[in-house]
Computed example of a mutant assay.
Amino acid sequence: MIRTSRQKTRQQLHGRVLLICTLLASAVLCPQRALAGFDKEQLAGFEVTELKGTVSEALAKEKVIEIVDPEGHTEVYTVGLDLEPLGLEPGDEVSLSVLDGLLVDLEPSDDQDLSFSREDIILPSDMGKLKKGMRVALASGTGRVIKLDRQDGSLSLMGPFGGINNLDVLVTPENDPLKDLNVGDLVDFRLVQPVAVDVRKLSRSLSRPSALRPPLASDLLRSGMTLKAELLESFEITHLHAIVTRLLPDQKVLEIEGPEGHNILVTSAVDLNSLKLSPGTEISMDILDGLVVDLRPATSKALSFERQDVEIAGDFGPVPKGTRVAMATGSAEVVRISRTDRTLSLRGPFGKVHNLDVSKRMPGMVFDELALGDLVEFRFIKPVAIRITPLASR
């Protein structure tokens, strides 16, 4: 995963600002204010994500932990348990169970300036997956939409410090906050920030991410391959802003830097030559997220990766006949799991992390029994761009 020094500095600043806000925030509020406008039904919308990280700072008394996640992002979490017994220090590797950030109020904003306000509380009673005595951070303000997934009910907001909040959204038959929302919109929000409900100290890993970069392209196999139509129900379309970092128009392959600093290889159902893109071009795009179609415990301890490009023999939903699609196989380490929305992050031999959806047709037992640190053999379809719009041309 590659990020510019400016992005690193910006994200570290965001983490430090949130950390300072946590220390200055009120620790206990009266029970009448403890819900802060959130009811138990809303809080039941939380999803649990398991992930690995490296501690950059741990404040046991304040129940706050700052970690660098598998993709190199600095994240700050309030913690719902006693950190003292763990004796965490910078550099320690940990696995966490995190209640993902939950957005409970969203509307178009009349403000043109981004803002962020944070308030910490101690819960006076159990609220769904949040338990009595847990420290919870509540936030409100104005943010910019930089990533949107209507099918998954999630979006990413950028705040005034440049940090990214990845959030689940409460969608009901009466209210769908994402219905008329577009990437780039400014919105007023109210949310519960991510909460770590379990922290486990790990032994130091001897492996270090490789500085090598995965291949941008491979030889095209004209196999007349046809993807199963049933896989379409597992694909999700994500709308996002990105920056082109590498480009092979004749092979319909590009590498983009996403809004969170991720570098992603994407095959394109769009003719890249007609767009006249170049490295550094800012684009708006819709992509079919990467999809895991085969997964099993690895028989080898060595990580591996092999890429194979094929042309689709027939129309596959929004992907037209003749589109070049990258299929990947190999073995990788599980570094993040979200069982509720069936997503998985795998770290391969290049040190790169792949964020992937898991096909709903895959036997549940295979996915449900996975644990952080497991080595798995995989087969997945890499992300496919179905719309690309250079922002400068709008």
Score class of each variant (00 low, 15 high):
Leu88Lys: 11
Pro124Arg: 09
Ile388Thr: 13
Thr172Phe: 13
Thr49Lys: 11
Ser154Arg: 12
Gly258His: 05
Glu236Thr: 13
Ser223Val: 13
Cys30Gly: 03
Leu181Ile: 15
Arg336Ile: 02
Arg6Thr: 06
Ile337Arg: 10
Pro318Met: 10
Arg6Trp: 00
Leu248Gln: 03
Ala25Asn: 12
Pro297Trp: 01
Ala217Gly: 12
Thr49Pro: 03
Leu138Lys: 12
Asp168Ala: 09
Lys252Asn: 03
Val171Trp: 01
Val169Gln: 08
Val199Gln: 10
Gln7Val: 01
Leu265Ala: 08
Asp271Pro: 13
Thr389Ser: 07
Arg296Val: 14
Leu227Thr: 07
Ser274Ala: 10
Met127Gly: 10
Glu377Asp: 12
Thr340Pro: 03
Arg222Cys: 06
Gly162Asp: 13
Val244Trp: 07
Leu240Trp: 05
Thr54Leu: 03
Val98Glu: 14
Leu391Asp: 12
Gly280His: 08
Gly224Asp: 00
Arg361Glu: 02
Arg118Ala: 12
Ser331Thr: 14
Asp92Trp: 08
Ala313Arg: 01
Arg135Tyr: 03
Glu84Met: 09
Ser109His: 01
Gly373Asp: 02
Leu220Tyr: 07
Val334Met: 00
Ser284Gln: 02
Val28Phe: 08
Asp113Gln: 07
Arg307Glu: 06
Gly159Cys: 02
Thr22Trp: 05
Asp126Cys: 06
Leu24Met: 11
Asn182Phe: 12
Val145Arg: 02
Gly141Ser: 09
Leu157Phe: 04
Asp39Val: 14
Leu344Gly: 09
Lys52Trp: 02
Ala229Asn: 10
Pro124Cys: 05
Pro85Cys: 07
Val68Thr: 15
Thr74Ala: 06
Glu119Met: 10
Leu186Tyr: 04
Ser345Thr: 15
Ser117Asp: 13
Leu114Trp: 05
Val253Gly: 03
Thr329Trp: 08
Leu212Asp: 08
Val79Leu: 05
Arg190Ala: 15
Arg150Ala: 07
Ser278Gly: 03
Pro70Leu: 00
Asp180Leu: 15
Val292Trp: 01
Gly128Tyr: 09
Ala328Trp: 07
Gln32Ile: 13
Pro31Cys: 08
Lys8Ala: 06
Val376Met: 11
Ser345Cys: 10
Leu123Gly: 05
Ile237Glu: 03
Asp180Met: 15
Thr389Phe: 04
Gly143Asp: 01
Gly280Arg: 11
Leu295Cys: 06
Ser56Trp: 07
Ala371Val: 14
Pro70Gln: 07
Gln193Ser: 13
Gly133Ser: 11
Ile337His: 00
Pro320Tyr: 00
Pro215Tyr: 09
Glu71Asp: 14
Glu174His: 05
Leu114Met: 11
Arg394Phe: 06
Val183Arg: 00
Ile287Gly: 00
Thr343Cys: 05
Gly258Pro: 06
Leu51Pro: 10
Ser278Phe: 00
Asp149Ile: 11
Ser393Val: 07
Leu254Ile: 09
Arg379Gln: 12
Glu255Asn: 01
Arg204Trp: 08
His73Asp: 15
Val28Pro: 13
